[in-house]
């Protein structure tokens, strides 16, 4: 064993090297575009959102009600055909107060993402959404919340048809 060969030094660059031109580098950006089919089950989900409803699906074997809905139950590996409207209320399973935007900019008023267990779905079956109309320090796990919907004419069949969840 030649111990000196175990760790190989490399050249560590400071961020300033990209600004002051002390190294050579190339820069590029990509413009990638996609049109995603929402699929059968999420198609039901989005159509429901446009109507102001949160849609789930129920497995014929284990009888759990899933949200977001799917066309199969990954627990039982059975086909699922039964879609049903759930309530638009729920319980906060967990949340964060986030001071960083999606592109790593600092923000002063925190965003409040949460996993919300939806009433009518099986235990601990939640969806990702945001919490609003509350002081950030008052949000807590176990809190009851209700969806705040966009006006019917403004809904497009999108998860953002729910603006956020607010205290019930």
């Amino acid at each position: 064993m030649n111990a000196k060969n175990r760790y190989y030094p490399i050249n560590s660059l400071p961020e300033s090297a990209f600004q002051d031109g002390s190294i050579l580098f190339s820069f590029d950006t990509f413009n990638t575009r996609y049109a995603w089919d929402c699929g059968v089950a999420i198609g039901e989900y989005l159509a429901g959102l446009r109507e102001g409803k949160i849609i789930g699906s129920t497995c014929p074997k284990c009888h759990r009600t899933m949200v977001p809905p799917r066309l199969f139950c990954e627990w039982c590996y059975q086909p699922v055909h039964h879609f049903l409207p759930l309530l638009d209320t729920g319980t906060i399973l967990t949340f964060s107060l986030c001071y960083v935007s999606w592109d790593v900019q600092r923000i002063t008023e925190p965003e409040i993402p949460a996993v919300i267990a939806i009433d009518g779905a099986s235990k601990n079956h939640g969806i990702l959404h945001k919490i609003g109309e509350i002081e950030p320090e008052k949000v807590h796990i176990g809190m009851r919340v209700r969806a705040l919907w966009k006006a019917p004419e403004d809904r497009t069949g999108d998860i953002t048809d729910i603006l956020y969840f607010k205290p019930e």
């Binding site: 699929g39 989900y45 999606w102 969806i127 990702l128 998860i159």
Partner: peptide
């Protein structure tokens, strides 16, 4: 479809 429109990080 169900998450990215919320602009998560």
């Amino acid at each position: 479809t169900t998450e990215r429109p919320l602009k998560p990080n």
